[in-house]
Design a protein around this nucleic acid. Structure first.
Lengths: 186, 186
DNA sequence: CCGCAATGTCAACGCTTGGTGACTTGGCGC
DNA sequence: GCGCCAAGTCACCAAGCGTTGACATTGCGG
């Protein structure tokens, strides 16, 4: 009978994680319920707890934030945007992971801390390879623009930005990133 | 005994609204509880309901989004940032109103809609006075940068941006806003 | 063939939440 | 003085939440 629910897929744990990611990304932390996640997988909520212990632990497990930014050493500031933006779209669109973190960070200090961590450990070092002058400040400004873009486009879905193509967006934003990385800071 | 709780301050309703604004700004929509708001005022939760009917209605009442942007007609794109940034800091720091909306927008479609409304009805028209060329798109880009700044500085409180002075921040961002308003879009 | 660990379900818990309705109390107009 | 309305409290739901522990079922190693 092709084993409709054959018993122990072993991938159940992974399925829960995927479902959790989707839910957290769509609804945020508080509105996401263990029962809903469990329901998506076709499983009891108690099982989710069995696997992950607690809702917060599930969130931590679901939000594994690997940006995997490319190596920017030797890249000219003007070309950084072109090198980075493909990752931008991948990170925000392909998996919901990062969107979940952004949503959760709005109300959860733990999630906000995780986001700061991503910035300090992944974004800032990658950008530091491009500018020797005030790298932290420049990276922060780039980060703020990127976050604002993501928030406007993927969370707010505000009209003009949500409907621009990737290429249009990339073209519009590239000069600004270049300016933050190499222009005067004030 | 100097009437410690004299009975009917008449400003109770206003006090509830203020407390609600603070709570929503600090904790976001879902983590804010009617009981907590009531407790801040020293009042029963039922009274809050009596006054505002429902939690969502309380939120709507608490989030009266008047940006009160200055008239930008005749202002050169290069001077727009200087004209706008004082309002930026006032809106995000002085009252928690807008911060509450930003936090709530991350997980509530209603709040997101309210934020889009603010953009369409207040930000876009104000900026349209500056640029005849693709005003909607330019305004959206400005908005995304401003939102990103607010999110990074006030929600995330990420190190470099949260600690920069208003003047430093203004100086760093001004050229970018000018570019979005008058530079090529790609 | 038997036992056992893994995988999973079920029912229930304690708690908090938004919301309701009956009641009390104070101040003011008449 | 008296009655009445606003302002406020109290006890109480029903629902939903995360979490728990006891129980079923399966596959596998001896």
């Amino acid at each position: 009978m092709a084993a409709p629910r054959p018993r122990s897929a072993a991938g159940t744990r992974a399925a829960i994680l995927t479902a959790a990611r989707t839910r957290f990304a769509a609804d945020g932390y508080e509105r996401t319920t263990l029962r809903a996640v469990a329901g998506d997988v076709g499983v009891d909520a108690a099982l989710v707890v069995r696997y992950f212990g607690t809702k917060e632990a599930l969130f931590s497990a679901a939000a594994e934030f690997e940006l995997r930014l490319p190596d920017l050493a030797g890249v000219a500031p003007g070309d950084v945007a072109a090198a980075l933006l493909p990752r931008f779209f991948a990170v925000w669109e392909e998996q919901g992971t990062f969107l979940a973190l952004l949503r959760a960070a709005a109300t959860s200090e733990a999630a906000a801390a995780a986001m700061r961590e991503v910035f300090v450990r992944q974004v800032a070092p990658a950008l530091a390879a491009v500018t020797p002058d005030q790298p932290a400040r420049r990276a922060a400004l780039v980060g703020s623009q990127v976050l604002g873009l993501a928030f406007t486009r993927y969370v707010l879905r505000a009209a003009p930005l949500a409907e621009m193509s990737r290429d249009e967006l990339a073209a519009a934003v590239a000069p600004v990133l270049a300016h933050y990385l190499s222009g005067p800071l004030g």
